[in-house]
């Protein structure tokens, strides 16, 4: 218990330091730091509609991040969430295109099935390569990302091209409104329900199944579970497939919800933000939900930065990057600080 409290504190300290640093940088660059903070807090949570926007960005991120948690816990660094997200969206778009005209209660589940299967398959081949021949999954999943971007460009400018498109950005024909699960505004009960279901199932999988305990052990020491009689093939491949399927699910949600169409190069940072979220949350599902909403809030705040603080909206990328930097740079100083704190009996 104390372990997880400390890790949340640790993450919070890092985020505060990162924000302070950004404030410093922006004020040196001639912007107003207090305005920046106000824009972030307002834009993320306080303004009317801000919370909805936070959910709009946060829920798909949570779905992908939950998948990342599953593979990272098992010790496989599937950093291909972005590619699996794209392939999932592409497969769902194809399904919607082929089944166009059929009633929504058939098309929507079929799209979800197609999207999850697509994402799962896109994670499966690096998984098989890793487990069969030891090919580093970091390399193969990263390659998978690049491939998926190319496939997306091809699909949006070829098979699914919208002939009436503006030409600025290649995209598919918009989905029939009957097949959409939310408006362009972004949140709907369906999406919330999907995210909640994912949350419940993944929490159960991680915390209440033999798979959860064993994959956690395998992630920390694969040799040990092998000597206990585990087949890494089963645990490992299942982790890849689940994590890919969730990224594909998030892709489907984005396609059939807020986006409504497949656009070349849409949401290019989704998968990487999800990885960041999973790491900040220390690979816990509950933590992932909280952190995903926080990052959803930041994404929503990006819209307010230009209005309130006069900053370009891409400033939010700088803030994200600063947080990533601080979280990943396992600071000895902060860790020692927290350890001393604990040693003195600050927590029981």
């Amino acid at each position: 218990m104390t372990e997880s409290i400390v890790s949340v504190f640790r993450a919070l300290i890092f985020i505060v330091i990162a924000l302070a640093l950004c404030g410093l940088i922006f004020s040196v660059a001639g912007y107003s730091a207090p305005d920046m903070f106000r824009a972030i807090i307002d834009g993320a949570f306080l303004r009317t509609g801000a919370l909805q926007q936070a959910l709009r960005w946060g829920l798909p991120l949570f779905i992908t991040a939950a998948g990342v948690v599953i593979s990272f816990r098992a010790g496989y660094f599937n950093i291909g969430a972005q590619g699996q997200f794209y392939i999932g969206a592409i497969c769902a778009a194809f399904a919607a295109d082929w089944l166009n005209g059929l009633p929504a209660f058939i098309v929507i589940p079929a799209c979800f099935l197609a999207g999850m299967t697509g994402g799962a398959l896109w994670a499966m081949w690096p998984g098989i390569l890793r487990l069969r021949s030891g090919a580093d999954e970091v390399i193969t999943t990263l390659m998978g990302n690049f491939l998926a971007v190319i496939v997306l460009i091809y699909v949006t400018s070829g098979p699914l091209k919208d002939p009436t498109g503006s030409g600025q950005q290649a995209s598919s024909r918009p989905l029939d409104a009957a097949y959409r699960i939310s408006t362009s505004y972004g949140v709907s009960p369906t999406i919330i329900a999907i995210a909640v279901l994912v949350g419940i199932f993944m929490w159960l999988l991680v915390n209440r199944t033999a798979f959860g305990v064993l994959s956690g052990l395998a992630g920390r020491n694969a040799t040990m579970v092998t000597w206990q009689g585990a087949r890494l093939w089963n645990i490992g491949l299942a982790s890849f497939i689940i994590s890919g399927a969730l990224a594909g699910l998030a892709g489907t949600v984005e396609l059939m919800g807020p986006n409504g169409r497949l656009a070349s190069g849409f949401l290019p940072a989704h998968g990487f933000t999800a990885i960041l979220i999973a790491l900040v949350a220390n690979l816990s599902i509950v933590g992932t939900a909280i952190v995903a909403l926080f990052f959803g809030g930041l994404a929503s705040a990006a819209l307010y930065l230009p209005v309130i603080a006069g900053l370009p909206s891409s400033a939010i990328d700088i803030i994200n990057a600063a947080i990533a930097l601080f979280i990943t740079a396992k600071s000895n100083i902060v860790d020692r600080f927290l350890r001393n704190w604990r040693k003195r009996g600050w927590t029981t």
Binding site: L204, N207, R208, T209, A210, G212, L214, V225, Q228, A230
Partner: peptide
């Protein structure tokens, strides 16, 4: 670990 590996992977456990 030893005991859990004698069960199906998706069986529920109570930590």
């Amino acid at each position: 670990a030893r005991e859990l590996l004698q069960r199906p992977l998706l069986s529920m456990v109570r930590p």
